[in-house]
Design a protein around this nucleic acid. Structure first.
Lengths: 205, 205, 205, 205
DNA sequence: AATGAATGAGAATTCATTCAT
DNA sequence: CATGAATGAATTCTCATTCAT
């Protein structure tokens, strides 16, 4: 579990006496941020199984600090992905507003594909069965899935798709298809083509 | 220390047919078989990155023996998959003969899915970029791809599919989709559904 | 498992002066020292190719600790030899001050011989061509060679030697001649005799 | 693959009863020769610690055959060197006849140097203290030493050298000095220079 | 006699994780 | 709180040696 100091702290301590303003708290916060940034880079480069040490080094902190904030590797993975997942979720409304449902669906999936492409090992982690990754899978289910669900419903309502498909399943499938992007993590044309075929499949009767 | 073969046991169990003790020479063949069998099981359980030792142990041979027959890990992987790939290839003609092109295509893909489902890490290995796995990728290209190509061509000729898709790419995509089958390696309904959607996508204009 | 330091023992043995228990942090220094001491002994006994493990064991640390401080074997070798090389270098001035050039040269070479005698495999390492040992060879070149160069120049100026000889080459030759000292590492009379002949050779026209 | 037995009996076995004409004897002889040749090459390339297998492979025989003829590694080393030692010994008379004693001594030593230069690890083996190499050391003592002794005595009688030096010791010293020849095994200028200085040392009063 | 398959003991190296400072 | 030293299990790979065929 990541620094659960931060979450409640924000609101609760905001009203604090103005005096205590530069505690160690801010430091810890900075470390957490640095670690997440470092992990983001390292995960993209070497996959989510990269050595803990390389992440700590890149963040400029000791491994002990990493373990303090992220006792489980999956905690770090979750933390890394959470912000990007959130960004992905946040991208939906604009698409929904600007495009017809079917197109919005497609565009959002492509957006999601880009997110997944840089996460080497993400799909493997999600499907590893390792209980440590359950929180991550849950985050998928509770955040991305509802968004996709909504997009799917709209497209279905518009008559664009007939298939009845589970959003979580579809998220997993697209993640799987995105495997094997180059080291840089770019979406390959290959991935792109396959995802499009899958999307086409949703249209079929 | 050499193979502690049960020399005296041989006479007593001479009538025995199949139960091989611990062989030699001509039975290097048997060791190879045992290794492939062991690897098949271990790969299915722990993925293709499982420790060499665990495979050797399960096969009842020393690691040296494993290395003798399969100097590279990819050699073993290839050996394990080759027979199944061949079986997959061999399954095509019957389907082509018995079903209309589009249906034959679908059925063969499902057959292929079953093969891939038990190979944890297969897709990852194929896409790892590690040159050690190139022979394996080649085997895919030279054996499975032509078969699928033929099925695709027939289906296209029959007007079943419009999409122009590369066979190797499609093989990779289906392999990716098949990730995450349970430890047992069965094709999950989830995988099945996603593959069907992909197949449906091939039909779309 | 971390260092099982004898925490409670400390008070009882507080009066103790030198006998370090199993330290930490600041005592990484002590570990380094212990490793160098252990390596010195092991190298003398089994040569510089002795198993890493045996050195770590003798030092009472894990192999990981050894690797932390000396990532390359040559790093350890260098560390072991450096202090002795330095001692060897430091011995020169006194000799130069107390003896005429020719004699000082001879005495210093004998001193150097004593150093080399306990380093089984040192000469082999120096000549192995293995790039890992280049730092060590460099240390020879940059520390011992100048010293010998100076002694040679003085002896030459005094008319003691006519031969024009490269200091590094001569160091290597003497090291080679010193091979085969008993396990104890003492300078054998045999080595002594051969080195003296070589030194005599330097005098010849 | 079994030995390509029966190369057809040689002239040597002609005296045999005409019946028994295709003995294994000739084959074994051939294998021994092939092994020695192979070992000579491999030793020069990789040193006397080269893997047994590489020698057997190069000789085109199984390792079992190697072990049959040379149960100990030192047996093979001895066998390899013996012929060259003999050649070295045989070179002496011609030099003694054609040159004055001092020059003959120098030339023979240089000849010996050439022999040693291609034997990576020979000197180390001689001095390893491993009892397995005693026969080899003995061969040195009983074959090369007397030759050198004779050359030394002649040079001493001619007034060329004053030093009283043990032949075996001198052989060892020159062998040591020859360490570090390039992979090809050529005598390096460095080695040459040092040996010449040693020889000069023999002249000194 | 020859062969080469099999064995398994080493040896090197990496890395997750703990915990003294 | 942070640090990073220490640990040692785990894993890969090599090679000398034996012995069934």
């Amino acid at each position: 579990m990541p620094a659960r100091t931060g979450t409640m702290a924000s609101a609760a301590t905001d009203g604090d006496t103005g005096a205590a303003r530069r505690p160690q708290r801010a430091d810890a916060r900075q470390n957490v941020t640095a670690l997440i940034d470092a992990a983001k880079t390292v995960f993209a480069a070497d996959g989510v199984d990269a050595p803990v040490r390389s992440i700590a080094d890149r963040a400029g902190v000791g491994v002990g600090t990493l373990y303090r904030h992220f006792p489980q590797r999956s905690d770090l993975i979750s933390a890394v992905f959470r912000s990007e997942i959130d960004a992905c979720v946040d991208a939906a409304p604009a698409l929904e507003a600007a495009y017809p449902p079917g197109e919005a669906l497609d565009l959002w999936i492509m957006r999601y594909t880009q997110f997944v492409a840089t996460k080497r090992g993400l799909a493997a982690a999600l499907h590893s069965g390792d209980p440590a990754y359950e929180p991550l899978a849950d985050y998928f289910s509770t955040h991305l899935a509802p968004t996709l669900e909504r997009l799917l419903a709209a497209a279905r309502a518009a008559g664009d798709i007939q298939q009845d498909v589970d959003a979580t399943e579809l998220l997993g499938a697209v993640a799987n298809l995105s495997h094997g992007g180059g080291p840089g993590g770019a979406v390959t044309p290959r991935t792109d083509r396959m995802v499009r075929i899958l999307l086409a499949g949703l249209r079929a009767g």
